[in-house]
Amino acid sequence: MTHPDLPAGGVRTLEPAVRAASVADIRAAFEAGMRDFMAAPVFGLFFGAIYWLGGLMLLTLPGYFGYVWAVFPLAAGFALIGPFVAVGLYEVSRRRETGEPLTWPLVLQAVWRQGGRELSWMAFVTLFIFLIWMYQVRLLYALFFGFASLDPLLFVQQLFTTADGLIFLGIGTCVGAILALVTFSITLVSFPLLLDRDVDWITAMITSLRVVRESPEVMLGWGLVTAVVIFVAMLPAFAGLLFVLPLWGHATWHLYRRLVVHPVAT
């Protein structure tokens, strides 16, 4: 089975084109993602478990070492690295689409090969944004609460019952929303594009931005729904990510395939 946008004898160019998205595209991508998850649930649960366990570590370790202030921003910023963790899911969907064998060695090797390619630069970009998020939260914490570590209960009390705490929450939420919007815009289709095609990471980011610009209302709606679902999935000790990551990972692949068109030269 070949990609539908590649005619027989055609040769791909490096500049992908984008098309406008509709709610129907979102629905179709989600339905296709559900089919992928149901057809290969072990792969989905495996990568979902990695994401879940990583979330649990970020939730428990800061409190254990006395950095209670870092628990909430770490949990909030953790979603930023979701597209990178989902690379294995993109590979599963790609193989199902093309009819290639779907085995653990082949999927894991495909993911491992990305370590020395352009996709690793995109991973660095998302990690850099995550670090910016954490540093600005640390700066705000120092400005409003000083440098001393607070008792967990005292910190929560000050966070929600004092003017400084509410201002801290307000500013942090606004900055986080801006960083989340930037990350969403540059990673919406960049990771699956880099896995699928031989393009550089700058081109991948620009293509992702063009997808968002082409249909801002639909794409931002998709991003808002994604953020809400991930937040709900995190409430039961991050356990919901076991199922949310596979569904959204597979759906993202199919959304990329619907919105990014690779021109061909015959």
Rank of each mutant, 00 (worst) to 15 (best):
M1F: 08
T2L: 11
H3I: 09
D5C: 12
P7D: 05
G9R: 12
R19P: 00
A21Q: 02
A24G: 12
I26Q: 00
E31A: 15
A32E: 02
M34G: 11
F37D: 05
F37W: 07
F37L: 09
M38W: 12
A49L: 15
A49E: 09
W52C: 11
G55M: 03
L56G: 04
L61M: 10
Y64I: 03
G66D: 12
Y67S: 11
F72M: 13
P83W: 11
F84E: 11
F84K: 11
V85E: 05
A86I: 00
A86M: 10
A86S: 12
E91I: 05
V92Q: 01
T98Q: 10
L102R: 08
T103Q: 05
P105K: 08
P105M: 08
V107A: 07
Q109E: 14
A110W: 02
G116F: 09
S120H: 11
S120N: 13
M122K: 11
T126E: 15
T126W: 13
I132E: 02
I132K: 04
W133C: 03
M134Y: 08
M134G: 03
Y135T: 10
Y135L: 14
L140F: 12
L140N: 04
G146S: 09
L150V: 03
L150A: 10
P152W: 08
L153G: 15
L153I: 14
F155I: 04
L159K: 00
T162V: 05
T162Y: 05
I167C: 07
F168K: 00
L169C: 11
I171C: 01
I171Q: 02
T173K: 08
C174M: 14
V175M: 10
V182G: 07
V182Q: 08
L188R: 13
S190Q: 12
F191W: 07
L193W: 13
L194I: 04
D196Q: 14
D196P: 06
R197P: 07
D200V: 07
D200Y: 04
T203W: 03
I206Y: 04
S208W: 07
S208M: 02
L209T: 00
V212L: 09
R213I: 04
G223Y: 13
G223K: 06
V229A: 06
V229R: 01
I230Q: 10
V232T: 04
A233T: 05
M234K: 13
A237F: 14
A239G: 11
F243T: 03
V244L: 12
G249S: 00
A251C: 02
R257F: 05
R258D: 03
R258V: 01
P263F: 09
A265H: 12
